[in-house]
Write a protein that binds this DNA or RNA. Structure first.
Lengths: 148, 148
DNA sequence: CAGTAATTTCAGTATATACTGAAAATATGA
DNA sequence: TCATATTTTCAGTATATACTGAAATTACTG
């Protein structure tokens, strides 16, 4: 199975539309890096409608960006710079959501008493990663700016 | 909206069955921490079939465990110790999957040439987190064992 | 102002799966 | 072994949505 198909399968397993994965995968390996909707339609075998709406989805998530060349009605799509960082940051926001959820629960059952022990562990667990992950992130950015 | 309902909604947004979220949420705040299927059915308003299969799902993921008391056919369900760690570890495995995927792509297009630049960035990005995240994890475990 | 290349919309379909409710299976107590 | 409490299975339903293909729209060119 090709890389592009495996990206499609990965998206599928993550509950995302397969075609979004095919597009993302193809945009990762195509040459040149910018492609038109028609090229992506050809490369993935998906319909024009799917390509259009899935590219819109990927743009909304910040993984893909497009630009038009003046004097033409063609639009060119490419992987957005920093797409991986953005995807990772999105994942990390879940940690904050879960920490907040634990606090919603604690407000509901009260801080003391046997009903709060699991929620306090949940809150502390996610609060720890919420605090530590941004530093890790910055370290990557730093190493990346310097010569790797 | 109650904490339990918000957990249901969270699961739903993550592409997981809502009822699994309701069960997980209720098991986080119930007293006593162990509950029977009948109690969970009552508490969540879900059918016996759903409660059974969603508890099975949660057990499969390692978030819930059950035990039977001798001399009775009742089974008791509770949040598994370390459920949050396990959930986080599961998420982190995706980093490895994506790093491997990048390598599949690189094998396909070759390391040099313009087609590999995005894939090399992808591989390096995920390889960095794959290397760093386990240490963060261990630090949490360590702090948690000591008095927080 | 046409003519046309490209994009976008959208109705229709196919498919997957969460969920229910009741029947079947299982395991304990008498 | 029979009766019963509990769990498990499963057929059927409802719902959501990925996807197609064609029509409608948009925007550039001559």
């Amino acid at each position: 199975m090709t890389f592009v198909d495996q990206m499609g399968e990965f998206f599928d397993r993550m509950g995302q539309p397969r075609i979004a994965g095919l597009l993302f995968g193809h945009l990762l390996i195509c040459s040149p890096p910018e492609q038109t909707a028609a090229q992506l339609e050809e490369a993935t075998g998906a319909s024009a409608g799917s390509v259009n709406s899935m590219l819109r989805l990927l743009q909304g998530l910040g993984y893909v960006e497009r630009r038009g060349e003046p004097g033409s009605r063609r639009l060119w799509y490419r992987i957005a710079p920093g797409a991986f960082s953005r995807a990772m940051a999105e994942r990390m926001r879940l940690v904050e959501v879960l920490r907040r959820l634990a606090e919603v629960g604690l407000e509901e059952v009260g801080e003391e008493g046997g009903r709060s022990d699991r929620l306090r562990e949940m809150r502390d667990f996610y609060a720890f990663f919420e605090r530590q992950l941004p530093a890790l992130f910055e370290e990557y950015e730093k190493r990346h700016e310097d010569g790797e």
